[in-house]
Write a protein that binds this DNA or RNA. Structure first.
Lengths: 340, 340
DNA sequence: CTGAAAGCGCTTACAG
DNA sequence: CTGAAAGCGCTTACAG
C-alpha cells in the first residue's frame, strides 16, 4: 500500500496542491467549504505530510533544539519538561534529540540545526572540551550549554551557559565533613573517561583537603562510573585498602548509595561508623535510609534560566550570558560529628 | 554565513554533484584521487549534508525506529542500548524518537516511518488502547510493541509483542504476602490516567485476594503516579485511614520506596511492623534499606527478544510473534512472616 | 570513473 | 480565495 502524497490528496479533493498545503498549515485564506472538504479527504485517506519535505522547503521554523548527551542523567527528563514548557509559552517548540555516545556533540548540533531549521540549540550535558570559537560561529544560531563544563578558552560572547560551580560545591561538601571533625575522608569519583564534571569535583575535594591541612592519601581514592554497582564496588575496594576512614564523599548520589550498600554488608553503620555525603540531591537521596546528606542541584532554576536566555536572545536580541548557580548542601542524617 | 550545499562543494572541488554525493555516501566507484580532493574540500568548508534532503530522496534506509513514550521509565535507557547493539550487529541502525505526552502513539509511528523511511518500528511503552488492525496495516512495516499492554481485539498476525504477564506477576506478589500470613494487604496503584499497566496489576491484586478469600476493603486502596512523592503521599493517607494493615503492595518500586519513607517517619519498621513489596526490581531496590522484595522485570530479555524478532522478520521473513516473559519475585528483606 | 538531469514531497511567492 | 510553477538539497538511474 503506497503512501499518498500531497498531489494525490489534491487530485482526490479536486483542488490544487497549494490549497491542500494551506489547509495542512492552517492558513486562514481558504474558503471554509474548501477547507472542510480537503480535511475530510485527508482524514479518510489518513494522509500524513512528509516531514522531510517540509523541513527541506521551509526556510525557517519556530523550533529550538534540545540536544542531550547521557540518557542516564537523572535530571534531564525534568529539565526537558521545564524548558519545553517555557519555550512553548513563548511561542517556540522544543525538538529533542538524544546524541549517541561517541558522536561529536558539536557536529550533532550542526546537523540538527540544518535538518530542522532550528532557531537555536540548547545542549544538556555533552563534551565540549575541544570546542572552538569558529565551530560555535558556524552554527549560526544561539547556542546554550547547560549542565556541562565549558572550556575556558572560548569567546564568551558567542554562547551562553548555565551551570553550577562544581569545584566550589565539592569543596564545600568536603569542608563540611572536615568541619565536623573528619580528616580521613575518602573520595569516590569517576575515571578518565569523564573529562569534565568528575575531574572538577575532584579538584574541589583536593582544595578542601589542602586548605584544611589534611594530607592527601592515595589509598583514599576510588573510581566508579555514575552507577550503583560501580559505587558499591568502589566502596568495597576502599574498605579493603583504607579501613581507617571516617567519612566518604561520593561525587554522585547514585554512587553514594551504592557505597552505602557496601557498608551495610560489612556491618558498618552510617553515620555512626562512617559519614557519607553525596552530590546531586536526586529524588532517592531524601528517601534513602538514612536520608542522604548531599549537594543540591537547582535543577528547575537551571532549566528555567536556560529557557529564558534562549527566549530572550530570540525575541529581544538579548546578549549571550553565563550564569553560575550557587549550590547548597542539604543536611540530612548520613553525616555525623566526630567524637572528640 | 550561509550554509554550503552539495552544489557549492561540487563547484569548489571542480566536480559534479554526483561525485560529491558518491564521496559522501562512500560509494566505491570514485577515483582515489578525486575522492581525496573532494573530502578535503568537505572538511575545509565543514560541509554537512542536509538530512531532510537525503531522507526525502532516499527510497529506503537500513534504519529501525524506536519510539518511546514515558521518559521516566527507568528501564528504557538500558533497553534502548541493548536493542541498538543487536540491531547494529545485524546491519541495521536504530533511530530513537521520544514521543511527547498527549501525542497519539500510532500517528507518531506513522510520521516517523514516513520521515525516516524506516524498515520497522519498535514501541517502548505507549498507549495502544484503541489501536485498530487497519492502523497497523497502514504502517507498512514490521511493528513490535514492547513493555506495553496490548489490546485483545487485534489480529495477532499483524504485529509482534514482547511483554510480561503483569496480572500474574501482581497476583503472585500478593499471593506471596498472603502465604506469609498477611491478610490485611494494602495496595498502592496508579489512577485512571494510566489505563494499561496499573489497571492490570490491580487486577492481579484483586484475584489474589479473592482466591485467598481475603475481603477487599476500600480503605486499603491508594493511588499514586509512578513517583516517590506520590508513593509517599499515598502511604501517608493509607496510614491515616487503614491503621491495621500489615503489608503493602506497591505496583512500582519507586512508589514502594516513597511509601517506605512515610513509614519511617511514623516510626513504623519494615518489615517488622509492615511488610512491603514492590514491582519492577529497579537498580535501587537492591540497594534500598532494607533491600526491597519485588517483582523482577527481565529487562535484558525483553530487549533482546524485541530486537531478535525485528531482525528475524526483516531478514528471513519470519512471522510476527507474541512473547510473554515469566516474572519472578526477588525475595529480599522487606517482607516478613506474620506471627501466628 | 564521472556529470547532467530528473525527481523525492513539500511550501511559497506570483498571478489571477 | 485558488492554482501552476519554481525550488529546497539531496540521490540515482542514465549516458558517456
Amino acid at each position: 500500500m503506497k503512501n499518498l502524497n500531497i498531489k494525490d490528496i489534491a487530485k482526490l479533493a479536486g483542488v490544487g496542491v497549494s490549497t491542500v498545503s494551506r489547509v495542512i498549515n492552517q492558513h486562514t485564506d481558504v474558503k471554509d467549504e474548501t477547507r472542510k472538504h480537503v480535511q475530510e479527504i485527508i482524514e479518510t485517506y489518513n494522509y500524513i505530510p512528509n516531514n522531510s519535505a517540509r523541513n527541506l522547503k521551509r526556510n525557517e521554523s519556530m523550533d529550538v533544539g534540545i540536544l542531550i548527551k547521557g540518557m542516564y542523567n537523572p535530571f534531564f527528563a525534568r529539565m526537558i519538561q521545564s524548558i519545553e514548557k517555557r519555550l512553548s509559552s513563548a511561542g517556540y517548540s522544543a525538538i529533542i534529540h538524544y546524541n549517541i555516545e561517541g558522536n561529536k556533540d558539536i557536529d550533532a548540533a550542526n546537523e540538527f540545526i540544518l535538518e530542522k531549521k532550528l532557531k537555536g540549540v540548547i545542549c544538556l550535558g555533552g563534551d565540549f572540551d575541544k570546542l572552538t570559537d569558529q565551530e560555535i560561529q558556524r552554527l549560526g544560531v544561539p547556542f546554550i550549554l547547560a549542565s556541562t563544563e565549558i572550556p575556558e578558552n572560548l569567546n564568551r560572547s558567542l554562547f551562553s551557559s548555565v551551570i553550577i560551580d562544581n569545584e566550589m560545591a565539592a569543596y564545600r561538601a568536603v569542608k563540611y565533613l572536615s568541619d565536623m571533625g573528619h580528616n580521613k575522608i575518602a573520595l569516590i569519583t569517576t575515571g578518565n573517561e569523564d573529562k569534565s564534571i568528575g575531574t572538577i569535583r575532584t579538584q574541589g575535594y583536593l582544595r578542601a583537603l589542602s586548605e584544611q591541612n589534611i594530607e592527601k592519601k592515595e589509598n583514599y581514592f576510588e573510581v566508579g562510573a555514575y552507577t550503583f554497582e560501580t559505587g558499591y564496588e568502589a566502596m568495597c575496594r576502599l574498605l579493603e585498602k583504607a579501613n581507617d576512614i571516617t567519612a566518604v564523599f561520593a561525587i554522585s548520589d547514585v554512587m553514594a548509595i551504592g557505597a552505602a550498600k557496601a557498608m551495610y554488608e560489612k556491618g558498618i553503620k552510617i553515620p555512626d561508623d562512617i559519614s557519607l555525603i553525596g552530590f546531586d540531591d536526586i529524588d532517592y537521596a531524601e528517601f534513602f535510609n538514612p536520608p542522604l546528606t548531599t549537594v543540591h542541584q537547582p535543577v528547575e532554576e537551571i532549566a528555567e534560566s536556560t529557557a529564558d536566555i534562549m527566549i530572550g536572545i530570540l525575541d529581544d536580541n538579548l546578549k549571550h550570558q553565563h550564569i553560575i548557580f550557587d549550590t547548597e548542601i542539604v543536611i540530612r542524617n548520613s553525616c555525623k560529628q566526630m567524637n572528640c
